[in-house]
Structure formats: structure tokens, C-alpha cells
């Protein structure tokens, strides 16, 4: 994860007497509840709270408006929650698409022979050699921005590292004796891929999904912040942050601090889920 995320370290370890697995479970429950609250809040809160209300503009944090209001009198808490919900949706779609691409390419690279393998490995190296954000800007811009552009851009930039992991895993598996036996029993490549190989990489996919997710959200916010992502009408975190830049010098600190912190919180939550899943699902790392 990026260094930015490492700065905020939440360690939720409520009961010291719990063993590792129980602690993982507790952490997952708490973090999931938090995320659920964010999503529910984003879906349930009405749009009236983010309608322009010039009588209440530029208010600092208070009980009625915990995150304050902006220069149009819109409630920042509602905007933040709605923005995060949108980000989670976009991130989930993009991460799922990325994982699918990684699964297909990783399996193909490992099972379809040397030519396919070298083409896919070359593609992986190509995509890894260009910074995500640059590639994302190019793709998103070419597709005309908006949710479609961002999702496709994120999906197309986040698959390479997971593809490598899956390729390596499948490479190791395909020479397993039970796979060779299966071939001699007349099973097709499709059958072997689906029944023998897939169950072994499924945990990796799960972990990959949760570790790609925070990446995707951060990149979504970044590209929107630059102005090449979601449109300004959507309540996205990137939009909120880039707009609040203009007001930072006028002592309206709440415009940037709360949405920024919330974004970090959500991202870090998914990171925690991913890390715990990895150490539980991957036997080689189970003792970390």
C-alpha cells in the first residue's frame, strides 16, 4: 500500500486474550460494520441535505452538521458518505473486473504454452512499467471520463500484479501428479482448469480483490481530483477534495479534513480486511 495509508494505522485489538483467528474475526466484524454504516448512510440519507441552502453556508462542524457545510450550504457529512458510497461501488466494480482479467490471463499464461505465456508476461511488464495514474489518465480520457471511463480505466490498470501471482501459482500446480492423471483420464483443459486449478487459486482471488480495492478507490479519487474522472455533478470524494482546495486558505479546514480522513478510514478498512483474509486463507502466510 502507498505510504499515505501507512501513516494512519488503526489496530483494532479489543480483547487481548483472544487467539489470532478470533482476533481476525473480531476485526473483520468491526471493520465490516463500519463499512456497512458508510454504505447505508450514503444510500439512506436524502438528497435534500445536499441541496443548495444559502442560509446555512460556510458553517463549521456542529451537531446539526458534524462535518460542517460548504459554500453552497450543502451538508458535508452527507456529501462525504454519498461520495464514499459511490467510490466503494466504483472500486468494487473495477476491482472485480481486474480480478477477472487477472484470473483469465494468469490461467492462460500458465496453461496455453510458451508463446501465450511470453505475450502475457510482456503485457504484464508493459503495464507495470507505466505508473498506474498515467495509464489511468490516458484510458479514462480516451473514453471520455465519467463513471464508465474511470471503471474501465481502473480495471485495465490494476490486473498485472495479481496476474503474476496467479500465473506462478498455476505453473506450480499444472505439473502436479493429479493434474497429469486427470489428463490421462481424458479430461479436457477446460475441465482441468475449472475443477483442478481454480479451487487452488480461489483464495488468492479473494485476497486479491480486497487488496486491489483500496488501490482502486484511491486512484479513482486521484483521477477525479485531477478532473479527468467522474463529472463534477456526482458527489465523489475526489470532487469534494479538489473543490475544497480553493477554500483551504479561507480557514474552512473542515471541507478537506473530514472527507479526506473518511477516505483514509475506508481505504484502510479494506486493507485490513485484505491482510487478515490473506493471513487466514494463504497457508504459507498463516503464521505471520
Amino acid at each position: 500500500m502507498s505510504s499515505m495509508m501507512k501513516m494512519v494505522k488503526f489496530s483494532i485489538q479489543p480483547f487481548i486474550s483472544l487467539n489470532g483467528r478470533q482476533r481476525s474475526f473480531m476485526t473483520l466484524v468491526i471493520v465490516s460494520l463500519l463499512l456497512l454504516c458508510v454504505i447505508l448512510g450514503g444510500l439512506v440519507l436524502s438528497n435534500e441535505r445536499i441541496a443548495t441552502d444559502l442560509g446555512n453556508r460556510n458553517l463549521g462542524p456542529s451537531l446539526a452538521h458534524p462535518f460542517g457545510t460548504d459554500w453552497l450550504g450543502r451538508d458535508m457529512l452527507t456529501r462525504t458518505l454519498k461520495g464514499l458510497t459511490l467510490s466503494i461501488g466504483v472500486g468494487l466494480t473495477a476491482a472485480a473486473a481486474s480480478v477477472t482479467i487477472a484470473l483469465i490471463l494468469g490461467m492462460l499464461a500458465a496453461t496455453m504454452g510458451k508463446v501465450v505465456d511470453s505475450i502475457i508476461s510482456w503485457l504484464v511488464d508493459l503495464f507495470l512499467s507505466v505508473p498506474h495514474l498515467v495509464m489511468l489518465m490516458l484510458i479514462s480520457f480516451a473514453l471520455g471520463g465519467g463513471i464508465k471511463g474511470v471503471v474501465i480505466g481502473l480495471a485495465l490498470t490494476h490486473w498485472p500484479s495479481l496476474t503474476r501471482v496467479i500465473r506462478a501459482e498455476v505453473m506450480q500446480l499444472r505439473s502436479a501428479e493429479y493434474v497429469e492423471v486427470s489428463k490421462r483420464l481424458g479430461k479436457s483443459r477446460w475441465f482441468i482448469g475449472r475443477k483442478h486449478l481454480f479451487p487452488h487459486v480461489a483464495p488468492q482471488l479473494m485476497v486479491g480483490l480486497f487488496l486491489l480495492f483500496p488501490h482502486a478507490i484511491l486512484h479513482e479519487a486521484a483521477i477525479t481530483f485531477i478532473g479527468m474522472g467522474l463529472s463534477p455533478h456526482q458527489p465523489a470524494i475526489g470532487i469534494i477534495l479538489s473543490e475544497s482546495m480553493r477554500y483551504l486558505s479561507t480557514e474552512m479546514w473542515w471541507l478537506a479534513i473530514f472527507p479526506g480522513l473518511s477516505l483514509l478510514l475506508v481505504v484502510r478498512s479494506f486493507d485490513i480486511i485484505g491482510e487478515h483474509l490473506r493471513s487466514r486463507l494463504d497457508p504459507h502466510r498463516a503464521h505471520d
Binding site: 502436479a176 493429479y178 475443477k195 487452488h200
Partner: peptide, 8 residues
């Protein structure tokens, strides 16, 4: 044990 898929 090597000739049988442990996930089956």
C-alpha cells in the same frame, strides 16, 4: 497423496 487433489 500427490496423485489426489487435496481439494476434492
Amino acid at each position: 497423496e500427490k496423485a489426489i487433489n487435496p481439494k476434492w
